[in-house]
């Protein structure tokens, strides 16, 4: 069953320089208990698209121009702020990249961790505290009962990210959105947090959306993968399809250009050029200026997603069907 069904989302920013089409074509279906990975470079619209769903876009200059986001049959994009507030943080929780700046340094962990319970439930203070300690145990923070009274600076980076995860899980959400959850962490700490996320999903049945530029993290966690480029979803499919049978030239180029520990390679074939300026997007395929397989039609027409018959695998490319 789909918990979240997003269709044709468009989020534009109206700036002095012109209209920035940060998200121009974005759709996905999130099944219960599934992990969806969203991959893209900076400015590809991966964070903006997810923030749009939760009403976290500054308006103005931002505006959701079109689209639908059905959460259990209700359109998130049509909800009033007060309706949205009942969903956000309670049913759909989010963790951010930088655990150093997402916690208030002046408040004890207990206060910040259980604040959401005070908002969304009628638990008493002692019940909230007990639930906070329970969640801190769940994410593997030792001595939770005493550490819950500490301040953020008394925690290391990895432990702070665990606190953030505990905070997101405290209301038993259906969906957890993790925006670059391990980017600010060292590799050995990243491995701990990734393990925790895998473990948690086994324990609690929730759906996870993970946003990152790290294809290794995606390979580790995701069931389905969605590739973003310049505000467009260029490819979507099961993780194995994306990694072993990529259809879009951007996905293919990206996978080839990664230096890897598990493969020996002499040369790194890189993608020429750099991502486009979203104000100056022309007609035609967004990847056309950098695409090694570009034809006349790519410059003229924006491709529509082409489905591969074999599976739930789509690529937005004129040539992917016969590739």
């Amino acid at each position: 069953m789909a918990v979240l069904d997003v269709k044709n989302l468009k989020t534009y920013f109206y700036t002095r320089e012109g209209v920035v089409k940060a998200v121009d074509d974005f759709s996905f279906t999130l099944e219960m208990g599934m992990t969806l990975g969203i991959v893209g470079e900076s400015g590809s619209g991966k964070s903006v698209s997810v923030c749009s769903l939760l009403g976290l876009i500054p308006k103005p200059p931002g505006r959701i121009v079109a689209g639908q986001a059905l959460y259990r049959g209700n359109d998130l994009l049509q909800m009033s702020e007060s309706q949205l507030r009942r969903v956000r943080g309670k049913k759909i929780a989010m963790i951010f990249q930088d655990p150093m700046t997402s916690l208030n340094p002046y408040l004890r962990i207990a206060t910040q961790l259980t604040e959401v319970l005070a908002m969304h439930t009628d638990m008493t203070a002692s019940q909230r505290l007990a639930r906070g300690i329970e969640c801190m145990n769940l994410v593997g923070i030792p001595n939770a009962a005493s550490r819950i009274h500490d301040y953020p600076h008394q925690f290391s980076g990895g432990m702070r990210q665990r606190v953030m995860i505990a905070m997101a899980l405290i209301t038993d959400p259906d969906i957890l959105i993790a925006d670059e959850p391990t980017t600010a962490l060292d590799v050995t700490i990243q491995a701990q947090i990734l393990d925790l996320l895998v473990d948690l999903q086994r324990k609690i049945r929730m759906s996870v959306i993970i946003i990152t530029h790290d294809l290794g993290v995606i390979a580790r966690l995701s069931d389905r993968v969605l590739i973003m480029y310049a505000g467009n979803k260029v490819e979507e499919g099961a993780a194995d399809d994306i990694f072993y049978r990529p259809q879009h030239p951007y996905t293919q180029g990206l996978l080839r250009s990664l230096p890897r520990l598990d493969v020996e390679h002499e040369e790194l074939p890189s993608i020429a050029g750099s991502p486009p300026d979203l104000v100056l997007l022309k007609q035609g395929c967004v990847f056309a200026p950098r695409c090694p397989q570009r034809q006349a039609v790519c410059v003229e027409d924006r491709p529509i997603p082409i489905k591969r018959a074999s599976s739930q695998h789509t690529a937005k490319c004129h040539w992917s069907a016969d590739a």
């Binding site: 432990m159 390979a219 580790r220």
Partner: peptide
């Protein structure tokens, strides 16, 4: 350190055994 780096390869990732380090620096 080597075992902590995730590979961009889902099949390997499902089978790999990792050495998880305790704590922080």
């Amino acid at each position: 350190l080597l075992s902590a780096v995730p590979y961009p390869d889902p099949r390997q990732e499902r089978q790999r055994r990792r050495i998880l380090l305790r704590d922080d620096l």
